[in-house]
């Protein structure tokens, strides 16, 4: 794509601040194509890429959790509190707290963190349960309060505020639409019908969810409308899922093609000597050889 033309003529072999270099090109193409080779069959290239992925990914996540979840809130926090001027305070949730108290409280958290770590030595001990219990309580409470407000109270408010059957003044009259102006989705008639469908669909689905016990013909019919609403919703979700998955694939293909530029070629400027071409050739060759020698039987 346009990226091909955009690569500067001189590609450096290696640069810590860029991935548009020869070395990165080889790595990126190798890992991408090695993972794709799994589509044919499990093989050593895929296995290498998979294990590097787990190794590098775990290390990366560990560094993030260490830096932001342990170093920051324990080491940096206590360090900052220790070095405050005599009349300064630590702010906790908008409240000024005496530094000694702040440090003391945070040290309790550090000890509880160590208790959690004691699982390594004695998995069934009582010590890890304390921090775990705190974590569960905090998590449950914050989830319960936030979600009840936003997903129950404000959702219902939203239906009342927006789902009322009134349409905005800016809506088009049907006659104007028929005369050729605007789109049907802007007409008052369309919006009114839509809002009625929304309210009926919502009520029917909620009724379908709630009345799971034995019910009469009337409720059954309502429940059926709920099922139809849900199926159309799931269908829309399926359509969007396809959209998303394909987008990922396109980006990968695009990224590999970036390095198919002759500027990335080894020994002369031929596209056949670029990382994607050479790596694909090697992977195919090895897979064919393994099939011929019967070596890939164990892999399946």
């Amino acid at each position: 794509m346009n990226m091909l033309a955009l690569q500067a003529a001189e590609v450096p072999f290696f640069d810590w601040t860029s991935t548009n270099t020869h070395l990165s090109g080889w790595l990126i193409c190798f890992f991408t194509l090695a993972i794709f080779s799994f589509l044919y069959k499990d093989n050593p290239f895929y296995k290498i890429a998979e294990h590097v992925f787990v190794g590098v990914g775990t290390a990366y996540f560990a560094l993030q959790y260490y830096n932001e979840g342990i170093r920051g809130p324990i080491v940096e926090h206590i360090d900052r509190a220790t070095n405050l001027a005599p009349n300064e305070f630590v702010t906790l949730g908008g409240v000024d707290v005496d530094p000694t108290v702040a440090i003391g409280v945070r040290l309790v958290a550090a000890v509880l963190g160590l208790m959690l770590l004691s699982r390594v030595i004695k998995p069934s001990g009582w010590a890890p349960r304390w921090p775990l219990a705190l974590m569960v309580g905090i998590y449950a409470a914050i989830k319960m309060t936030g979600e009840t407000q936003s997903k129950l109270v404000q959702q219902i408010q939203g239906v009342v505020k927006d789902g009322g059957l009134t349409v905005p003044d800016s809506a088009l009259a049907w006659s104007d639409f028929m005369a050729g102006s605007g789109s049907i989705t802007q007409t008052a008639a369309y919006l009114t019908v839509g809002k009625i469908v929304l309210v009926i669909g919502l009520l029917a689905t909620l009724i379908h969810f709630m009345f799971t016990f034995k019910r009469g013909a009337g409720l059954n019919a309502v429940s059926r409308v709920g099922i139809v609403t849900l199926m159309l919703t799931f269908g829309a979700m399926f359509g969007f899922t396809v959209l998303g998955r394909i987008a990922l694939l396109i980006e990968r293909v695009e990224n590999v093609f970036t390095f198919a530029d002759p500027n990335y070629a080894v020994l002369g400027e031929s596209a056949y000597l670029t990382p994607p071409a050479l790596i694909t050739a090697v992977i195919i060759l090895v897979l064919v050889l393994r099939k011929m020698t019967g070596k890939d039987v164990e892999a399946t």
């Binding site: 702010t91 906790l92 998590y139």
Partner: peptide
């Protein structure tokens, strides 16, 4: 300010007090 662990709890923490949530920049 960078990554903050804890999912919902992290967001709650940022919302309540950015200064309590982060000690340093990233």
């Amino acid at each position: 300010l960078g990554f903050i662990p804890g999912d919902d709890v992290a967001m709650g923490s940022i919302g309540q007090s950015l200064r309590s949530a982060y000690a340093t920049d990233d």
